[in-house]
Design a protein around this nucleic acid. Structure first.
Length: 306
DNA sequence: TCTGGTCAAGGTGGT
DNA sequence: ACCACCTTGACCAGA
């Protein structure tokens, strides 16, 4: 018997615009006062989304990187941690009280293995912001910041070594938060698994990226190796799952999750508790639809869908 | 109130 | 060489 908890990323489409969590502004309009108003409104939105999630028994959620707008930008600095400490810690308290799993996923501009020192510096600042936000919430290192390896720059091996070197230079508090995810064209599951083993980091397995990159069928023994990168400090393994959008670029997310395909995926899984982050354009609505369909069409004896 | 151009930012792949 | 695309759309000026 094992448990699969479902989650979704960043946006709740049911609650509507009031519960947005990524209000932002342009650098040209950014003042400390304005940034603070936006961030505070975003945190109110996040609290509302988390309450909605609890009312719908959803315990896994990705916090938008835009929750503190422009947080790592050198021209938009203000003491957000002090100014919003009450709001941030109250969200953390709520998450701990209800045993929520929160994660974050910096965007494509965060490239830890870039050969350019300005890009590396900006990436370090962005990773620190992510880690500091979760730290301020008082959340353990089970609440992850999930990163891709980055660019290839014509030489995958050298670029992997540069990732290792730069990773080792990060503060411990940031390193303990990080997990690495396979992508759809540069670093496949094998290279990310090797990298994670060499750095003692957990690996996030992304199903759609795997399918886009690899032609071989997924095996439970491979997922066992992925799961073994997660220690007690990291919590249960987190996986990403999405359905390919029809007649679209390879790797494009569909609006919803294909239920039959997800059922096949469940049957492959090792008997181990996990969290699955669903990446679908319909967000919370896609999660609820999938969960309802699973419950009505399938009565497994060894999996609990939460 | 709506819309099209633009926004902090990097790297890749298709033309 | 240029452009669209992506994580996670959202802002804003001009109508």
């Amino acid at each position: 018997m094992f448990s699969v908890r479902l989650g979704y990323a960043c946006i709740n489409v049911t609650l509507g615009p009031r519960a947005r969590t990524s209000r932002t502004c342009r650098i040209s309009n950014a003042t400390p006062h304005r940034l603070e108003d936006l961030a505070r409104a975003n945190l109110v939105g996040l609290a509302e989304v988390l309450r909605w999630n609890m009312a719908h028994k959803i315990k896994v959620f990705r916090i938008s990187s835009g929750i503190i707008p422009l947080a790592s930008h050198p021209l938009a600095q203000w003491p957000w941690k002090e100014r919003l400490s009450r709001e941030i810690s109250s969200i953390g308290d709520y998450a701990k009280e209800h045993n929520l799993r929160l994660s974050m996923h910096p965007g494509q501009y965060t490239v830890l293995n870039s050969p350019k020192k300005e890009v590396l510096a900006a990436s370090k600042a962005e990773l620190s912001y992510h880690a500091e936000l979760l730290d301020e919430m008082g959340l353990s290192s089970q609440h992850k910041v999930i990163l891709h390896v980055g660019g290839v720059y014509g030489d995958r091996e050298t670029s992997l070594r540069r990732f290792q070197k730069n990773f080792r230079m990060l503060p411990r508090t940031v390193r303990n938060r990080l997990a690495i995810e396979n992508d759809e064209r540069s670093y496949d599951v094998d290279s990310v698994l090797n990298l994670c083993n060499s750095l003692d980091m957990p690996m996030v397995f992304d199903y759609l990226h795997y399918k886009a990159y690899n032609s071989s069928p997924l095996r439970a023994s491979f997922l066992d190796q992925v799961y073994s990168t997660w220690t007690a400090r990291d919590g249960r393994p987190e996986l990403h799952y999405s359905t390919q959008r029809r007649r679209a670029r390879k790797g494009a997310h569909a609006d919803t999750i294909d239920t039959r395909d997800f059922m096949r995926f469940l049957k492959i899984l090792p008997k181990h508790d996990i969290d699955v982050m669903l990446e679908a354009k319909a967000k919370d609505a896609a999660l609820i639809r999938l969960r309802n369909e699973l419950r009505s069409r399938w009565s497994p004896t060894d999996v609990i869908i939460e």
